[in-house]
Design a protein around this nucleic acid. Structure first.
Lengths: 336, 336
DNA sequence: CGTTCGGTTTACAACGATGTACAAGCTGCT
DNA sequence: AGCAGCTTGTACATCGTTGTAAACCGAACG
């Protein structure tokens, strides 16, 4: 059985409160008493009970991170950074997977965990602005990676339009003219896809290249499989593209796989750009050119915003932070 | 402010305990009272306070999953399954990253989270048997992926020796005779590496192939980078290998990268086998032959074992479960 | 010598939920 | 009518912790 303040108090021959004072570093405790108590704590291997503390103080020291799925490397890497950043602030992270399903996301914003957590970092796929407006829960929440226009919560999100434009501009600068896009999504769960598509079109316009809808391939999910399939479709065209901008790295890696298995050369025949800079993209053959958001900065910023909410400015206006990103050019566009 | 049983009780005009009874589905509550209470609950948007429940019942409904790092795809995928399996049992999962550091692992087995969690699933890298014997914490714990001989805790771990042997036997069956191994580790944190090495040697012995220590390459970590480096070393040998057994997929993918960038053909010149079957291995070029442990089974088993510990047989003898695995043969050994 | 002062320690009441014990109301039996 | 036995509801203590208020003590002061 775990020991409590009561046990320590009895063992040390002092009151419960005194032990509590020692544990919490209260100043006015005599050296003698402090020593006695500390010895008792060591002897009984006492550890404060988080549940009781939580009940008393209304703070659990736990936050939730809700993301579509851990098996997607981008989210896994991001989650790793979040856990790390949280750890530095003595916070624990509880993981929820939404599969990008709207009802799961909704459920989570409405505080499923029942007072279990102090705050929430949510990376939504399907949630709409309206869903958020109707939110009744007062739990501090940070949104990741969705450009839901000024809403009810803090947001940390890269400038998807600018980043996408930069990626496509890179392809243009290499002399590519028939540039495809893989990853379009019409349905509600597609804010990110729409923004990256906008960046793509903007880059084309600036380069004076006509927009060709047949080069924009929609996908169901942002997985390797969808990328491979989409690329297959592009190769079947009468006039295949000479470059592809994929809305994330997994799509890009899937596309790569299809290209190579058709004996095509990358970037010789087709150049490929991704988005996310997952670790895998540094080791694929060829390595993948990609837009790299600073994931560590994203994680750290999200945690900091949450902590700000905890302490005081509970009702400040929602903040929006754009983390830095950069285009990393690798073999899939520059060649080996 | 969140509402409590007290508020609901006042609103419904009944006692606190009656509300509690309704919430907990106690049978002997009249239909009228139940309706009144339920209406009050809805009106006040009442949600039970987890902290209070936890304090009272000694159960939080939260477990911790401690693993080296989420950015390693194997652990990310595994974590995904664990969260999923836990969700089905109404458990929440809190993630801890150890970086495979012994002191972090030790800290965690000693119950850092302070009564915050009901149980622990730990995937140790550095922990030794002795460390575990000295464990004082009574928290139910399940060990993943380490073959620490019958210790103080339940274990879920594939038969590394048999699996490794099967992988190498596959290479032998393809006519390979100069088979290297990448991933040896001498230091304490290397139980897994040692077992896979044993399987490797066993397969060689069975095939009547002499053991050549120069073909066994040690690594610091099981990352792509280490695999790439190790492969480089092998290629620099006077007599390079015609096959490589990598102790995990990341090492294998790193090795692949080195081979291809040297213009070598896989499996033409060198065949490669990995271990873990991470998703990436289905999409690499060439796709990677690998030992695939059933991750979903591992996760489910771990959760089930934990739950068994919660309910009663707190002091049953430690169980050890060997999840199933299978060798999946892909292009890196069979060719395209 | 009584008073005040400050540091040190303690008793008590919360936080929100639930198990125990028991009271009140009802039924049905002798 | 009296009593057992059941249903339905309540009061109270409790889980481990901490904030509040107050008690205690020796020292310093007038």
């Amino acid at each position: 059985m775990a020991s409590s303040l009561k046990d320590v108090a009895r063992y040390a021959g002092v009151s419960i409160k005194t032990v509590s004072n020692v544990v919490n570093g209260y100043v006015h405790v005599s050296a003698v008493t402090r020593a006695k108590v500390q010895q008792a704590i060591a002897a009984l291997n006492y550890r404060p009970n988080t549940a009781a503390r939580h009940l008393r103080q209304g703070r659990s020291g736990v936050i939730a991170l809700a993301l579509p799925e851990l098996r997607a490397p981008y989210f896994a890497e991001l989650a790793g950074f979040v856990v790390e950043a949280a750890d530095e602030r003595s916070l624990k992270v509880l993981i929820e997977q939404t599969d990008g399903a709207r009802d799961r996301e909704l459920e989570i914003t409405e505080g499923v965990p029942g007072h279990l957590i102090d705050g929430l970092i949510l990376s939504p796929l399907a949630l709409t602005e309206d869903d958020l407006e109707q939110r009744t829960d007062r739990l501090p929440m940070i949104l990741l990676g969705e450009q839901i226009t000024d809403g009810a919560a803090d947001r940390v999100v890269v400038d998807n339009v600018a980043a996408a434009e930069e990626a496509v501009a890179h392809l243009v600068s290499l002399g590519r003219r028939r540039i495809a896009a893989i990853g379009a999504q019409d349905a509600a769960p597609g804010a990110t896809a729409r923004l990256r598509l906008r960046g793509y079109r903007q880059a084309l316009r600036r380069a004076g290249i006509a927009y060709d809808p047949s080069l924009v391939i929609p996908v169901e999910q942002f997985h390797r499989h969808d990328g491979a399939l989409a690329m297959q479709g592009l190769l079947d065209l009468a006039q295949p593209p000479d470059a592809v901008f994929c809305f994330n790295d997994l799509l890009g890696l899937g596309a790569l796989r299809t290209l190579l298995s058709h004996g095509l050369s990358v970037p010789g025949d087709v150049a490929v750009v991704g988005f996310d800079d997952i670790e895998e993209s540094q080791y694929s053959t060829p390595t993948l050119t990609t837009v790299a958001p600073d994931k560590e900065e994203i994680a750290r910023t999200a945690i900091d915003l949450l902590i700000k909410r905890f302490s005081g400015d509970h009702d400040a206006l929602p903040r929006s932070v754009n983390p830095t990103y950069r285009l990393i050019c690798r073999e899939s566009t520059l060649g080996g």
